[in-house]
Design a protein around this nucleic acid. Sequence first.
DNA 1: CGGTCTCTTGATTGTTGTCAAAGGCGGTGG
DNA 2: CCACCGCCTTTGACAACAATCAAGAGACCG
Lengths: 211, 211
Amino acid sequence: MLRSIPFFSKLSDAEIESLSRICVEKSYKKGEFLFLEGEEPKWLNILLKGTIKIYKTTRSGKEIFLHTMRPISMVAELVNFEHIAYPASALCLTNSQILKIDYDKFERDFLLNPKICFEMLKSLSSKLKIMNEVLSTELTLKSDAKVAKFIVENSELFGVLKQIQIASVVNLAPETLSRIIADFKQKGLIEFNDDFSIKFVAIEELKGLYE
Amino acid sequence: MLRSIPFFSKLSDAEIESLSRICVEKSYKKGEFLFLEGEEPKWLNILLKGTIKIYKTTRSGKEIFLHTMRPISMVAELVNFEHIAYPASALCLTNSQILKIDYDKFERDFLLNPKICFEMLKSLSSKLKIMNEVLSTELTLKSDAKVAKFIVENSELFGVLKQIQIASVVNLAPETLSRIIADFKQKGLIEFNDDFSIKFVAIEELKGLYE
DNA sequence: CGGTCTCTTGATTGTTGTCAAAGGCGGTGG
DNA sequence: CCACCGCCTTTGACAACAATCAAGAGACCG
């Protein structure tokens, strides 16, 4: 069971046994929070099943979508490692299964293990890469560029997600998204089928808006 | 010499010797770039002396300040580890001394070394923490809140930095900063001495603007 | 056939950047 | 010592961008 988790696949039987003694598995229902912005972490969470949305909240109550997590991933291990409060909230978009590890004991017994340490390194590195991308798109792109980027990179999601959901992913008001899409349509940069799935995209022109 | 760098302090004589064969030291003058956004990395850079400013550039040419780096730190090791292009530019604010390590060889010979791996982990973790803070302030705070935060956390810099420099650090137009400071003064939240250093700050009120 | 949700469209507002002009301040050189 | 120059700051007017508010149209579901 634990052995099937990539982070731990290289551990010895004795280590797996030891690890199993400091962790529990827990189910979360769709709509439940794994943690809230500002909370102090106690467990190192590993997402085994389900989808989780990570987002921040502004003072005025607006959500800022950061990214979704899919199995199998450590969730916000930064806060454990740095002993800080969660900088964002984690909401289960589907029923989810979480492995919760007592972090203090994990740090003491496993973090210096080279295999574990390297896996943590990989995980943190990919998070930092994601943060960089979020930061780039949110700070350097205008709304139309953000939409262009989303279309180029996620065209298959049109017709699957509602516009209101896409708007939340690209952190725009639904009205703004609607206007930008109308504008792209009018300029012939994009065409839709009857079911709102995409029929044609002028990829290069759209890329030109953000690259 | 290499031994005095915290990342490598625990290495054996043989390892230090081996490391010394894959790295060179290089001086950079104030105003020179260590790397530019979009470049492909070849070296793992370690800042030994000097101060370096990391910033992004928007499509319209505006700079977005991310943070400054002080010795001794790895610089943008993420790009080496992830084999991606630099997501930001690095400008030397003073004359600087950089240790440049051939990353491919470093990865092969040293990255699996537990001590090195753990040091990388710590470094990446602190970067991720910084990114999170940048992301929070830039995405969730309004201009006045950003200025309030800066005043509370860096009051000693008033009178040292010019307003135009502070404006660049908090990513605001100098005019906007000037107006916000005038507003705070008018509301009695802050008072200055003749030399522009701070005489009084209503810390709690200012905190209330961003916490 | 309500009723609810989504999408669209127009009008308006809030926030911040940009442009322009004027004043201050310090340094330099005659 | 003073005139001048350049940079910084301040202030006002304005523009750009996107959120919000409001209203109506359309789609889907019970």
